[in-house]
Every structure is written in C-alpha cells, then in structure tokens.
Simulated scan of single mutants.
Amino acid sequence: MVDAERRTVGDRGQVTLPKRLRETFDIRGGDEVTIRAEGTKIVIEKPTSREELAEGYRRRSDQQQALTEELTGVSREANRGLGDVPDWEDGDE
C-alpha cells in the first residue's frame, strides 16, 4: 500500500481522514462521502457533484459534436473522390 497511514477506529466506529488526503480530495467538515465494500477493502469516496457531472456531460457532448463534424467532412471528401456510387438493389437482376 503506497502512502498508507494507520488510524485507530474510535468506540463509535469513527475514523479521522488524514489532513493530506482531505486537502488532496477537497473534503471538508460537513461534506458527504460514499463508503462501500470492494472485495476485502473499505473504499471512501467523495461523491461527484451535480456541477462536476454536468461538466463531464458537456465535455462528452463537445467531443461527440467534434467527431460528428470530422466524420461528415471525411464522408464528403470520400464522396468527391469516389464519385457516384452505383445504386445496388438486392435480388434485382
């Protein structure tokens, strides 16, 4: 385990997160965290905020739009290079 720190669990089951980790993950008193079991480990995570989630969706949408525009351009370029494509019809001979 890299940079692990040992903590003692209090009588009420409480553990103090190390200051270094609270600062790294921007966790302050009163913030909510998610706690879950992952195999034999206990994982504590800061939940994703609505703003972070919305920003991720905006970035994904922008990426999809850029890809769509690029593929549209490539398709036009291919059509110009190939000319008209024959109209193939299945079963008509």
Rank of each mutant, 00 (worst) to 15 (best):
74 V>Y: 05
64 Q>K: 06
48 T>C: 12
66 A>G: 06
83 G>N: 02
52 E>Q: 14
17 L>M: 05
68 T>F: 01
68 T>G: 02
24 T>Q: 14
21 L>M: 02
80 R>I: 01
8 T>S: 00
57 Y>D: 04
63 Q>L: 10
46 K>W: 09
27 I>P: 07
77 E>V: 02
62 D>L: 03
62 D>A: 12
33 V>R: 09
21 L>G: 00
35 I>K: 02
35 I>P: 05
49 S>V: 03
26 D>Y: 07
52 E>P: 05
6 R>I: 04
24 T>G: 01
44 I>M: 04
77 E>M: 05
29 G>N: 12
45 E>A: 08
35 I>N: 03
49 S>N: 10
10 G>R: 06
78 A>I: 15
72 T>W: 03
8 T>C: 01
67 L>H: 06
33 V>D: 09
90 D>P: 04
92 D>G: 10
28 R>F: 13
32 E>Y: 13
86 P>M: 08
58 R>H: 05
82 L>C: 10
14 Q>A: 09
74 V>R: 11
26 D>C: 06
37 A>E: 06
39 G>R: 13
9 V>Q: 00
50 R>T: 11
55 E>V: 00
86 P>A: 14
40 T>R: 15
13 G>V: 06
84 D>S: 15
58 R>Y: 01
83 G>A: 11
72 T>R: 04
10 G>F: 01
83 G>K: 10
51 E>Q: 10
21 L>W: 02
54 A>D: 12
70 E>C: 11
34 T>W: 12
81 G>T: 11
17 L>V: 10
80 R>Y: 03
78 A>Y: 14
33 V>L: 11
34 T>P: 01
89 E>Q: 11
19 K>G: 03
40 T>G: 10
68 T>N: 05
8 T>K: 02
67 L>G: 08
65 Q>F: 03
54 A>E: 09
63 Q>H: 00
89 E>V: 15
7 R>W: 07
56 G>F: 08
49 S>T: 14
89 E>T: 13
59 R>V: 02
55 E>L: 07
55 E>Q: 07
57 Y>C: 07
53 L>T: 00
50 R>S: 05
23 E>L: 15
83 G>V: 07
36 R>P: 11
50 R>L: 09
24 T>L: 15
81 G>S: 08
50 R>Q: 13
